[in-house]
């Protein structure tokens, strides 16, 4: 017994070292559980407010590019306004048009604009921290977009901050479809180039061409339908009757300052209804 204690004492540094290494490995392996622990993620109040402060300084320095983005968005909105005016005019004459384009549909979604206080693009599992949280009505699982397209999904919220898993995270899976087709595939990131992602699970009987756009699908009620994700740059046919498609992302993740968080108002209702249907 005494020699055992002597043995342990002699190698106590080694044991302490091994203990700490195993602890770190456990944290890496259980990444998802630890992400939920607030004080270990950047939604914790100290880290959040520190990043908030530095982003205020850097935001001031990048005002001109933000301005540029706003001008572009403005132009886009003007264009949409024109289009809607045109549709409205048409509806005055064609009373059945309203029924065909369900007019109330847009009210299913609420948009909340948030500022990105910190973002990573250099790792395999990147994420963004934004300055709105539970107190502002944001919840886990909500979709996040900006003026260019789909950004990601909220994975953790504290009172004033939220953490978003962007497409650029090897754990992110986002339902998508090719514009004009109804089939749904999955967009995921392989962890190398921040400009490109892969689209999988699209069956080969669908004709796909280079330059086609990839858009969000409304299947999971996270994103509205037809939000831009990217354009197709390369198509590979796999042996299992599916495509492997390279998608150039429309969002520039290295320069992202403001995002919109989307709340789908009737999500619970929809899920309950579907669950009821499943259990029948």
């Amino acid at each position: 017994m005494r020699s055992l204690i002597r043995f342990l004492l002699k190698y106590k540094t080694l044991f302490f070292f091994l203990f700490l290494e195993i602890l770190s490995l456990v944290m890496i392996v259980n990444y998802n559980q630890f992400q939920r622990v607030h004080f270990l993620s950047s939604s914790n109040i100290v880290v959040g407010s520190l990043y908030n402060l530095t982003s205020k300084v850097s935001n001031y320095l990048s005002l001109s590019s933000v301005n540029q983005a706003l001008v572009e968005e403005n132009a886009e909105l003007k264009f949409q306004n024109e289009k809607l005016n045109f549709q409205l005019d048409r509806m005055r004459y064609d009373t059945s048009y309203v029924k065909r384009n369900d007019f109330a549909e847009d009210k299913h979604f609420i948009f909340r604009t948030a500022r990105v206080v910190h973002s990573f693009t250099n790792m395999k599992n990147n994420y963004l921290t934004i300055d709105k949280g539970e107190c502002d009505g944001i919840q886990k699982g909500m979709g996040v977009i900006n003026e260019k397209g789909v950004v990601g999904i909220v994975c953790d919220v504290s009172c004033h901050f939220s953490v978003v898993i962007p497409i650029l995270n090897s754990r992110a899976r986002i339902n998508a479809k090719i514009a004009g087709k109804s089939n749904v595939g999955t967009v995921l990131w392989t962890g190398h180039d921040v400009r490109y992602a892969k689209l999988k699970e699209v069956p080969q009987y669908i004709p796909v061409e280079l330059g086609d756009t990839v858009k969000s699908s409304a299947n999971t009620a996270v994103f509205p339908e037809d939000v831009m994700i990217g354009t197709i740059t390369e198509i590979e046919r796999l042996n299992n009757d599916f495509y492997l498609i390279d998608v150039k992302l429309s969002v520039d993740f290295s320069n992202i300052k403001y995002v919109d968080v989307i709340e789908f108002r009737h999500k619970d209702e929809l899920e309950q209804l579907e669950r009821k249907e499943d259990s029948k």
Partner: peptide
């Protein structure tokens, strides 16, 4: 550093080594 980077465990592993 991990807490700030969101890479829980990775920096801790390397720096302990």
């Amino acid at each position: 550093v991990d807490i700030f980077c969101g890479s829980i465990g990775c920096h801790a592993f390397a720096t302990t080594l």
